[in-house]
Design a protein around this nucleic acid. Sequence first.
DNA 1: GCATCTGTACCTGTATTAGTTACAGAATCC
DNA 2: GGATTCTGTAACTAATACAGGTACAGATGC
Lengths: 150, 150
Amino acid sequence: MATSSRFAVAVHILTLMAAAGDEPLKSESVACSVNTNPVVIRRLLCALARARLVTTQTGARGGARLARRASRITLLDVYRAVEAREVFALHRQPPSRSCPVGMNIGAVLENVLEDVESAVEQVLANITIERILRNLRPASATGRGRRARA
Amino acid sequence: MATSSRFAVAVHILTLMAAAGDEPLKSESVACSVNTNPVVIRRLLCALARARLVTTQTGARGGARLARRASRITLLDVYRAVEAREVFALHRQPPSRSCPVGMNIGAVLENVLEDVESAVEQVLANITIERILRNLRPASATGRGRRARA
DNA sequence: GCATCTGTACCTGTATTAGTTACAGAATCC
DNA sequence: GGATTCTGTAACTAATACAGGTACAGATGC
């Protein structure tokens, strides 16, 4: 993953669309809620469209809407659509091949990375956009209760 | 986490020290195995020393060694010592407070982030430097067998 | 005192990201 | 069919983070 806020913004975008139902949303109104530039939104929408999570339409009265029900879009789908990065990076320069540790540490760390990523994916795969939308309401309704377990 | 290779290099460093036993290692020889500059190593050693994972000694015949047994240092200790980043970032600019979604999406995403991070931490907490060192050998001995489950 | 090693300040080049302007092309409306 | 309203994308900027590197003060051992 990354320093980027792409994942967070993409979830935001999809949640807005889930709330909007069938009505297509314009990048400008989404940008207003996210508080950023419409082009930033459109770039993310492109990635989401490539992943078949949204459908977009150009031209007047165009915009974007969910390509399937919010209950069938998981945060893992979103993560894969917009975040290229690994959870942590390996060495930039390959370590010395003449050192017994340097020679093999890469493979061992890759195994660790795989374990970490599958743990992350398991969490994300179990959260849908619909659930995000549902968790939004009680938070604003009850006002307190710091967490509404996602 | 991050684009940075700090975590990977830090694990590498500690594994070298675990292999070296009581003998203090110089930043230069570590840098040789890692294939980078000694200063990069010293910077990481600083962070590891602050976290009480290694002890360093200045001056002639100085260097660094593990502060405790390799079996009592987990990758979570290492991660916390050298990686500042979160697994994913939230919005840079706070979303609109006048939009019902924008208003609360931050809190919901924070919960997701916490879930993801605790999953990551659980994986890392169960892997020790000793185990990394142990997994190094069979990999080079058997040669094949793509993974030696970390 | 001299040689050796860490700790740290400072500078560089590179990559990534978000934000922005600008504009071509698609779709709709009249 | 022509104006209007959108998306998609290119091009540029500014901010940030990271690795790599030089230099040197200060600590330690001999």
